[in-house]
Amino acid sequence: MKQQSIIEAEGLTKVYEDGHCALDHASFGVQPGEVFCLLGGNGAGKTTAINIFLGFLPQTEGTARINGVDVRTDPLEAKKHVAYLSDVVMLYPNFTARQNLDFFARLGGKQNLSREQYYSVLQQVGLQEKAYEQKLKGFSKGMRQKVGLAIAIIKEAPAIILDEPTSGLDPKAANEFQSMILHLRSKGRAILMSTHDIFRAKEVADTVGIMNEGKMLAIKSRKELEHEDLEKLYLNYIHGKVAA
């Protein structure tokens, strides 16, 4: 029996004032314990969909729900159930890793956490112990991304949205990051991740939504992709060789 989706889009559409359609009736759902990858190139509509879920952009049509809460009608309530990580995670360079974590944990509703609890999450994401109390100004992008992921984890939200999280990471850091995503999936989190990295999508996704020019061209499960070459499939879709 299919579970209810934690992250849910129904006919989600965004048309800008200049008439440009950034998202065209996209529908999909992410269930607990599922990693859903939005796969597409620049301008495919992946980030537009994410921005709508986070209330940064109002949709023109359709509905976006997180944990059953409509993000348009009750954005603050909806955001209680989602953690977010973007590709640009500079965080606060004058704060230490723990101080950054503390600030965002408190924003996410976690008050009075002990130093050990913060350290435990930082250890979970693989940050070196000596970096816990170091200011972020000297951190590499990979290290900052780990702190960002720790921020997403500590909120303990049922939904996690990741916008191009491995972009700019070296292979080792990207691999470590991937392991963390899989770990979160095993904890029952519904993960929506945008990426243009076909290899990463195939490795981590339970479901892949292929997007191009705002349209959701296809939604393929891991099982469906087992016998297919995702790269070839993706290129066929975006070149219109396969009917959407």
Binding site: L54, Y92, L107, G108
Partner: peptide, 15 residues
């Protein structure tokens, strides 16, 4: 906004 922290803050239940 440039450092990404604004999105991170507003992704929480913050007005």
């Amino acid at each position: 906004k440039e450092s990404g922290t604004l999105k991170l803050i507003l992704s929480n239940s913050v007005s």
